[in-house]
Amino acid sequence: MTTPSKKTLLFDLDGTLVDSFPGIRTSFLHTLHEKNWEIPSEERISQVPGPPMEWTFQDLGMTPEQAQDALQTYLEHYGQVGWDLSEAFPGMRDLLIRLKYEGFRLCTATSKGEFFAEKVLRKFEMFDLFEFMGAATDNGNRRSKSAVIKHVLDSVGLDEPNDILMIGDRSHDIEGSSEFGIDCVAVTWGYGSKTEWDAARYTVSTAEELERIIHDWA
């Protein structure tokens, strides 16, 4: 089976392809302990994956300068410990293999920094399945999901929103893609909430449902 025209799928990483929460949580809590900062509720901690980490630190009351300092502590610990605590979500690598074989163009669009995004993708043998890895800059202006998506569109030369589909789990994926007129599939095995998912064009709860939606869309 091949797609009638070149269709592009943009995949979020954390909460979509990979369960990175255990490592993110560990490094996040380590950072707050190091900075003697108040530990938020588990409900709040569960919402940490997705947006740039410095945004989260500021949301907890840190100044931009404190947040940047905390980010460096977080990245150091995540590089030593956190990144390797991830696990691939069941069925996602096999789905990527099938979609690539069928002729879909696969790209990532993740707010994770480029260095760790590549490490995680390589750990789970997904890196070579993607035509382009769109990720945030570890130190730079490309931090928001919309900035990452724009980077992918510009780098790959994509200009037809109807031929592009975003797959993610948080409001940042849905809102970021909508800025470019791109529909989004919300996956409920990630870290978002029903309120976030309700804003997406499609919602799925298994890799099998996602595959079916992609084929219907294409």
Rank of each mutant, 00 (worst) to 15 (best):
S27H: 13
S27L: 09
F28S: 04
L29Y: 05
H30R: 14
H30A: 09
T31E: 06
T31C: 01
H33M: 13
E34D: 09
N36S: 15
W37I: 13
W37A: 09
E38T: 12
E38W: 01
I39N: 07
P40I: 01
S41R: 02
S41Y: 00
E43L: 04
I45V: 13
S46D: 00
Q47A: 07
Q47F: 00
Q47N: 04
V48F: 03
P51A: 07
E54S: 04
D59P: 05
L60Y: 09
G61E: 15
M62F: 12
T63F: 04
E65S: 15
Q66V: 11
Q66G: 11
Q66N: 10
Q66L: 08
D69C: 05
D69N: 01
D69M: 01
A70C: 03
T73H: 15
L75P: 00
E76K: 10
H77W: 14
Y78D: 04
Q80D: 08
G82T: 06
W83R: 12
D84I: 07
L85K: 11
L85D: 04
L85C: 04
E87D: 15
A88T: 10
A88P: 05
P90F: 03
M92Q: 11
R93H: 11
D94C: 03
D94G: 14
L95W: 01
L95H: 01
L96H: 07
R98P: 06
L99P: 04
E102Y: 05
G103V: 08
R105M: 13
R105F: 02
